[in-house]
Deep mutational scan, measured.
Amino acid sequence: NMECRVCGDKASGFHYGVHACEGCKGFFRRTIRMKLEYEKCERSCKIQKKNRNKCQYCRFQKCLALGMSHNAIRF
């Protein structure tokens, strides 16, 4: 039983190089595919399941810091 490295929810698998839940997987995919840019935040918000949708900037930064990558495809 793995935990999502981004928000701590139950991970659904290994997505983009990191154990992640469906919510964070979809969030990362949409951000990359649609080339979304979020308003910069300096607060280093703590991303948890209950508040993961509050600060998209910090959520995406955490995805990147954990090594999530669009190129991380498993063979």
Score class of each variant (00 low, 15 high):
residue 32 I to V: 14
residue 47 I to F: 07
residue 65 A to I: 08
residue 3 E to V: 08
residue 59 R to I: 01
residue 2 M to A: 04
residue 19 H to M: 14
residue 44 S to M: 13
residue 62 K to V: 04
residue 7 C to N: 05
residue 41 C to E: 02
residue 70 H to M: 14
residue 15 H to D: 11
residue 50 K to P: 10
residue 42 E to L: 08
residue 54 K to A: 12
residue 18 V to F: 04
residue 69 S to T: 12
residue 28 F to N: 03
residue 43 R to G: 10
residue 28 F to K: 02
residue 16 Y to W: 07
residue 37 E to S: 10
residue 40 K to D: 05
residue 33 R to V: 14
residue 19 H to I: 12
residue 57 Y to Q: 01
residue 73 I to N: 13
residue 68 M to A: 04
residue 55 C to F: 01
residue 64 L to H: 06
residue 21 C to K: 03
residue 29 R to S: 15
residue 28 F to E: 03
residue 33 R to Q: 13
residue 73 I to F: 10
residue 62 K to Q: 06
residue 28 F to D: 01
residue 21 C to H: 02
residue 35 K to D: 11
residue 19 H to R: 11
residue 18 V to H: 02
residue 36 L to S: 07
residue 67 G to C: 04
residue 18 V to C: 09
residue 15 H to Q: 08
residue 45 C to K: 00
residue 23 G to N: 14
residue 43 R to W: 07
residue 32 I to C: 07
residue 47 I to T: 07
residue 43 R to E: 12
residue 56 Q to K: 07
residue 31 T to V: 05
residue 30 R to Y: 11
residue 66 L to V: 14
residue 68 M to T: 02
residue 65 A to S: 12
residue 13 G to K: 06
residue 66 L to G: 05
residue 73 I to Q: 14
residue 9 D to L: 03
residue 56 Q to P: 12
residue 71 N to F: 04
residue 39 E to Q: 10
residue 19 H to C: 13
residue 10 K to E: 12
residue 41 C to K: 00
residue 42 E to G: 09
residue 46 K to Y: 11
residue 75 F to A: 15
residue 31 T to A: 06
residue 9 D to H: 03
residue 12 S to K: 07
residue 20 A to W: 04
residue 74 R to C: 09
residue 21 C to W: 01
residue 18 V to A: 09
residue 15 H to R: 03
residue 12 S to Y: 09
residue 22 E to T: 06
residue 7 C to T: 01
residue 64 L to G: 01
residue 16 Y to M: 08
residue 16 Y to D: 15
residue 11 A to G: 07
residue 22 E to W: 05
residue 59 R to Q: 08
residue 72 A to W: 05
residue 73 I to Y: 10
residue 33 R to H: 10
residue 19 H to G: 08
residue 54 K to F: 13
residue 59 R to L: 14
residue 44 S to Y: 13
residue 68 M to C: 00
residue 57 Y to F: 08
residue 69 S to G: 12
residue 40 K to C: 07
residue 65 A to L: 10
residue 71 N to T: 10
residue 56 Q to V: 05
residue 45 C to W: 01
residue 57 Y to G: 02
residue 8 G to S: 05
residue 10 K to A: 12
residue 6 V to A: 03
residue 41 C to W: 02
residue 4 C to M: 04
residue 64 L to D: 01
residue 42 E to C: 05
residue 42 E to W: 06
residue 56 Q to F: 10
residue 56 Q to R: 07
residue 8 G to V: 00
residue 74 R to K: 14
residue 14 F to V: 13
residue 44 S to V: 10
residue 14 F to Y: 13
residue 16 Y to I: 06
residue 53 N to Q: 09
residue 26 G to Y: 14
residue 54 K to I: 11
residue 35 K to M: 10
residue 33 R to L: 14
residue 55 C to E: 00
residue 32 I to A: 07
residue 45 C to T: 00
residue 22 E to S: 05
residue 23 G to D: 15
residue 47 I to S: 06
residue 10 K to I: 11
residue 55 C to Y: 03
residue 28 F to G: 02
residue 74 R to D: 14
residue 64 L to E: 05
residue 9 D to P: 00
residue 68 M to R: 02
residue 50 K to L: 10
residue 12 S to F: 09
residue 56 Q to A: 14
residue 45 C to S: 02
residue 29 R to H: 14
residue 70 H to N: 12
residue 23 G to V: 06
residue 53 N to G: 11
residue 28 F to I: 00
residue 47 I to N: 05
residue 22 E to F: 06
residue 38 Y to H: 02
residue 73 I to D: 14
residue 55 C to D: 00
residue 71 N to R: 07
residue 34 M to N: 15
residue 37 E to L: 08
residue 38 Y to M: 03
residue 74 R to H: 14
residue 14 F to P: 09
residue 65 A to Q: 12
residue 74 R to Q: 15
residue 35 K to V: 06
residue 56 Q to G: 12
residue 14 F to H: 10
residue 70 H to T: 15
residue 15 H to Y: 10
residue 29 R to A: 15
residue 1 N to M: 13
residue 37 E to P: 04
residue 64 L to F: 01
residue 44 S to L: 11
residue 36 L to H: 09
residue 2 M to D: 11
residue 6 V to S: 00
residue 44 S to C: 08
residue 59 R to K: 08
residue 59 R to S: 00
residue 26 G to A: 14
residue 34 M to C: 11
residue 7 C to G: 04
residue 60 F to P: 01
residue 61 Q to Y: 07
residue 39 E to Y: 04
residue 37 E to M: 08
residue 68 M to N: 01
residue 20 A to M: 04
residue 17 G to N: 07
residue 4 C to L: 01
residue 32 I to F: 08
residue 7 C to Y: 03
residue 51 N to L: 09
residue 2 M to G: 07
residue 28 F to R: 01
residue 69 S to D: 15
residue 17 G to E: 07
residue 37 E to N: 13
residue 45 C to N: 01
residue 13 G to I: 06
residue 7 C to H: 07
residue 72 A to F: 07
